[in-house]
Design a protein around this nucleic acid. Structure first.
Lengths: 209, 209
DNA sequence: AAGCGTTAATTGACACCGTCAATTGACATT
DNA sequence: AATGTCAATTGACGGTGTCAATTAACGCTT
C-alpha cells in the first residue's frame, strides 16, 4: 500500500472500525473497548486506528454518531409501520421504539449521550445526526400542530418528549428503577402525561378514553 | 500508627478521601480522578486509599452515595425554605433545586447516576441514599394525594418526576440542549405538563392560571 | 526495468494507571 | 526491652493511550 486512499476507502475503513468497536462495546461493556482490543478485533495492528481517528475521543465521537443513526433507523422503521395511524399513536410507537432501542443496547445508548470531553461543542456531524433523530417525532408533532390540537409548538413538545424518555431509559439502564413493573408503569404514566399534557383541553377526554 | 482504627476513625478517613475525590472530580472532570492523584491530593501515599476502599469501583460507589446525600441536602433545604407554600409550589421548588444542583455540579451529578459495573445490583447503602432523596418530593406528593387532588399514587408520580428532570439535566450537561433559552423553556414546559398532567381535571384550570 | 518518493501500516518506547505483593514503621502489650 | 499487630509505604507488573521511528507497498519518472 502506498498511494493515498480515496475518500470512499477512508470512509469504508472508518465505518468498519466503528462497527467493530460497537460490537466490542456491546459485548464487553464500555470499559471493554480499548484501542488495542479494537485493533486485534479488526485484524489490524495496534496503531492503525490512529490513521482514521485522531485519538480515542475521536473514535468515540464516531461511535456516537453511528449509534444515533442506528437509533434513528430503528424508530423510523417503527413509525413507518404505523403510518396510517393517528398522531398520538405514531408518537407512542416512536417513543416505544426509542425506549426499546435504549434498553436493548444499553452500552451503546449510554455512549451516544456521553460526552467525550467536558464542555465540548457538539460537532456539525453529530448535530446533523441529532437533528435527523429529532425529526422522527417532530414530523407527526408538526402535523398535529398544523391541525391545531397542540398546546405548544412542536419543537418544544419534542424537547419535553426527548428529555422524559431519555431520563427514563437512563435510570432504567443504571439499574435505578428496580423492577420491570415499576418501569412499565412509569413509561405508561409518562406517555399519558405527555399525551394529556400537550393536547388542547377539548381533546383530552377523547385521548384519555 | 499501629493499633486498629476505630470505626469512627475509619469513617472519618473514608469521608475525607471521598470529599477529596469529589473535589478532584469537580475540578478536573471524571477522567481527572485517579487513585494516584487522589493520594497526593489527600497527602497520603499511593496505596493508602486501598486501606479504606476495596478498589476504585468501591471508591466511586462511595462518591455516588456522598453526592446523593449532598443533592438531597440541597433540595431539602430549598423545600424547607418554602414550607408554607402549597404542594405544587413545593414540588416546583424541589424540582428547581434538583436541576440547579445537577447543572452546578455536572461531573458529580453524572457520577451519581453512573454505574460502576454493568448490571450491578444497587448496594443497600446506595439504595438508602436513593430512598432518602426520593422522599424529598414524595412527602408533598403524598400529602397532595391524601387530599385527593392527585390522579395517580404519589410513588408513581415521583418516578415520572424523577425521570423527566433527570433526562433534562443529563441532556443539558452533555451539551445537547444548545442554548439557555431552549433549556429554560423545556424545564418550564416540563413543569407545566407534570402539573397539569397529574392533577385531577377539576383542578387543572386553577393550576394553569 | 530500475530506482525513487509518497504514504499506508507496523513496531518501539514512554508515561500513566489500577492493583498485588513485599516491606517498613509505630504503638500496645508483655 | 522485646515482640506482635496492624497502619502505611514502596516495589513491581500488566495494560492503556499515544508519540516517534521504522518498514513496506505502490505509482511515477528516467
Amino acid at each position: 500500500m502506498s498511494k493515498p486512499l480515496s475518500d470512499d476507502e477512508i470512509d469504508h475503513k472508518r465505518s468498519t472500525l466503528v462497527a467493530c468497536a460497537i460490537a466490542l462495546l456491546e459485548e464487553n461493556g464500555a470499559d471493554g473497548l480499548t484501542l488495542r482490543k479494537l485493533a486485534v478485533a479488526a485484524g489490524v495492528s495496534r496503531q492503525t486506528p490512529y490513521l482514521y481517528f485522531k485519538d480515542k475521543s475521536d473514535l468515540l465521537d464516531a461511535i456516537r454518531i453511528a449509534g444515533l443513526i442506528r437509533l434513528t433507523e430503528a424508530t423510523t422503521a417503527a413509525v413507518n409501520e404505523s403510518e396510517n395511524d393517528g398522531y398520538i399513536e405514531q408518537l407512542r410507537v416512536a417513543g416505544e421504539a426509542y425506549v426499546r432501542f435504549g434498553l436493548d443496547h444499553p452500552t451503546l445508548y449510554r455512549m451516544i449521550y456521553k460526552p467525550t470531553r467536558a464542555e465540548e461543542t457538539v460537532s456539525a456531524e453529530l448535530q446533523r445526526a441529532l437533528d435527523a433523530n429529532s425529526l422522527v417525532t417532530a414530523a407527526p408533532m408538526k402535523a398535529a400542530f398544523d391541525d391545531g390540537i397542540l398546546v405548544m409548538p412542536p419543537e418544544r413538545l419534542n424537547q419535553v418528549f426527548w428529555a422524559a424518555l431519555h431520563g427514563l431509559i437512563s435510570l432504567r439502564n443504571e439499574g435505578l428503577i428496580g423492577d420491570d413493573e415499576t418501569f412499565v408503569q412509569t413509561l405508561e404514566d409518562l406517555e399519558n402525561i405527555l399525551a394529556t399534557g400537550f393536547l388542547k383541553v377539548s381533546d383530552k377526554a377523547q385521548a384519555l378514553s
